[in-house]
Design a protein around this nucleic acid. Structure first.
Lengths: 203, 203
DNA sequence: TTCATAACTATACCTTTGTTTCGTAGAAGT
DNA sequence: ACTTCTACGAAACAAAGGTATAGTTATGAA
């Protein structure tokens, strides 16, 4: 939060290193020894960092130092999002029946907010958009869409499909990107998310 | 290593959960309380797990439990691989001039071994393979390829290209996947890697 | 049957570790 | 000038937490 002093910064770095090396934080005394200064000095530093909102300490508990400030947290890994393997007709999207496994997606590529899930693409209906059978489609959950968005939609309790979305006068056009597929016109469509990313594995 | 009993497995799961929730491992007593059994029981379990090579404990140190066994380690995050933004002609592939930034790729999707890098796809030469301008191509570095592989190749010191590889009698055919592009025949081709993954961002 | 291991309870050390008290000193702000 | 903050030290206290002792019960292998 506030401006961290140079010494305090060194202390955080040591805590981070210790966490990385051992999987658990150092004790106050271990911090002290490392900088070869007194227990009290280490204690003061930790408390100062706690007051500044960098750390959180569980009182009277050993080694209970958590890094809570964003800037000092380990570089964000991936986001675990559920891969819905076989989205059945008539079943709520995020139900267990649909669940296959979790996949990791680089967090940096997704917005901070929002709920995400992934689908295994079936069929070639979006072939011309470069989305092939077997691709993983990462979807951001949202219930409305803009014209031209590629969305996950469910029409009348059937299985979900990936289509391009267009709102027309008094209906919605769900357009496949494949000449062999005709557009689907409907008035009752449930939008279940918008395509954010395509991942294709060649291994 | 050995066969972990059901109880022991529960204990590991608790340690993992605690680590995830607090950033540091539980104490022996905290393990005991969670399962509402005695301190000694918890102690025995931890020691048993240590003997089996799942955990490592630092003697007489509080909360000094490390998970060392692969299978129980936190699911590996992403792999940082360099994104080569603009691969210049005549310049070594992994030189600084080509370097753009690092991207995180879910490790689970790549083999354990091998050196990886990523390219930003330019142009539509692989359009029919569902690889579009702006896509990120994750490449495994290797200098040979099998027929039909999509490879990164450099022909006579020009900029690198992504093409499908075919070895013919006394030459190599580098085939774009786009009707507007003609195949390139050459005898001097340098293979710089094989396509492993395509990532397309719609955000 | 015997022996080893797993899975515990209860209680008691005793080391580790967080915390406090009592100080010193410089820098910065009011 | 006065207070606040940073930055330390030495020593002591008390709570937290690892470890040990002395059992019990059940299971499966030898």
């Amino acid at each position: 939060m506030k401006n961290v002093t140079k010494r305090q910064h060194e202390v955080i770095l040591f805590i981070q290193d210790h966490l990385k090396a051992h999987g658990y934080p150092p004790t106050i005394r271990e911090i002290g020894s490392h900088f070869s200064f007194s227990v009290k000095a280490a204690f003061d530093h930790v408390k100062a960092l706690e007051k500044k909102g960098i750390l959180r300490c569980n009182e009277n508990r050993s080694r209970a130092i958590e890094i809570i400030h964003e800037a000092y947290l380990p570089k964000d890994e991936g986001l675990d999002i559920p891969l819905l393997g076989n989205v059945a007709a008539g079943v709520p999207l995020l139900s267990e029946e649909n669940f296959d496994r979790m996949i990791k997606v680089p967090k940096q590529m997704l917005a901070d907010t929002g709920q995400y899930y992934a689908l295994l693409v079936k069929g070639e209906s979006m072939h011309d958009a470069g989305i092939f059978d077997g691709d993983i489609a990462v979807i951001k959950y949202q219930q409305q869409a803009d014209n031209g968005d590629i969305v996950v939609a469910r029409v009348q309790d059937e299985a979900v499909t990936l289509k391009r979305f267009f709102r027309e006068n008094n209906r919605v056009r769900l357009q496949a990107e494949n000449e062999e597929y005709l557009p689907l016109y409907t008035q009752e469509v449930q939008i279940l998310g918008k395509l954010q990313m395509i991942i294709r594995d060649y291994t």
